[in-house]
Amino acid sequence: MPAVNTASLPDIVFMLLFFFMVTTVMRETELKIKPPKLPEATEVKKLEKKNLVSFVYVGKSIDGKIKGDVIQLNDKISTVKDIRSFILAKRAEVSQSDINKLTTSIKADITTEVGTIYDIKSELREINALKINYSTVQVAKK
């Protein structure tokens, strides 16, 4: 049996490589809290235009030193009061016409208390950042 010609193997591999390089999204923020277990939902919408989304992570602290729910913005553990400057900083980054398209995505663990989420929401209302998205895992409709 003649040996299979493998000369084009690098080409194929390069093609795959480029595909993955282009599609890869590197995780920009490193989680400082326990990775939140997102709730499940059926009626979900996809978040479009990632650059117009600010993420608020809510969960438990890794070492359990801080009691209750912990909020993470960008790379820092923060408090509810920091959300204001976080959103305003995001607003400064985007163009004027996109400001009302800015969405805040809340990635919260299923064990988070609703009170914490409410505090975040009232803070967002204060600065008129009204579009929010409760991040969920999509499951099939029953």
Binding site: V44, K45, L47, K50, S105, R125, L130, K131, Y134, S135
Partner: peptide, 12 residues
């Protein structure tokens, strides 16, 4: 892919 339930908060 980020997805979730979208909601609009009421104005202040």
């Amino acid at each position: 892919i980020d997805s979730g339930i979208s909601r609009k908060l009421p104005e202040k």
